[in-house]
Amino acid sequence: MSGVNAPTAPATGPGASEGANGVRRAVIAEDSVLLRIGLVKVVEMAGFTVAAEAGDAAGLLAAVAAHRPELAVVDVRMPPGFTDEGVRAALSIRREHPDTAVLLLSQYVEERYAADLLAAHTGGVGYLLKQRVADVEEFVEALRRVAGGGTALDPQVVSQLLIRRASDPLERLTAREREVLELMAEGRSNSAVAARLVVSESAVAKHINSIFTKLDLPKADADHRRVLAVLRFLGVAAGR
């Protein structure tokens, strides 16, 4: 179920550069050695080969430049400053190596970081709470989705960005439509949304159409509208 909902990855997007031999490589940056060991296991479980591990942002950037991986799993708070090193590294990776998708892990959701990331990129990025790695299956799915050019946003990121929206067209949405939109924003596909809400897929599609209408989104390519709806929902000005 990877990336069905995400913007269709353009030819140059992440996931398009899968190694010729079909091996997908990943780089991990996390300063806690203990957690790094666990992360390596999960990333390998998701079908990636861990090409390099780094303990700080500089090491991460060097590893990405050297290995050109499909995916980088990055801790937000890393030495030396223990602030937003990971976010800055992620932005620079997405800028300089568009083929590398980035999944940020953070102890807490900092909405500003998520907004920075999403404003610049709508695909091939993810922002999850660190504790989500414990739910191995879901985390593996998120890893694959991000590497495939999709997005994975923590429900907390979504609710945090939502707080900013005081009054706008979103208020016209019904509670159910909001729920659907929230799940879309997390990066879920129609069938995943349907499974989560215990409704049929066609019901989800109906909700989504109603959302598009209420948000005055043009009837163009469905994927594009989907992204626009999510971005409007999150209140993030889309970059590229």
Partner: peptide, 25 residues
């Protein structure tokens, strides 16, 4: 805050991750 972030929190996440791996595998 910093000590807990660098210590206990990472340990707990790692513990939960290993238990999750055990559950999954």
């Amino acid at each position: 805050e910093r000590d807990l972030h660098d210590g206990a929190q990472q340990r707990l996440v790692s513990l939960a991750l290993n238990l999750g791996l055990a559950k999954a595998t």
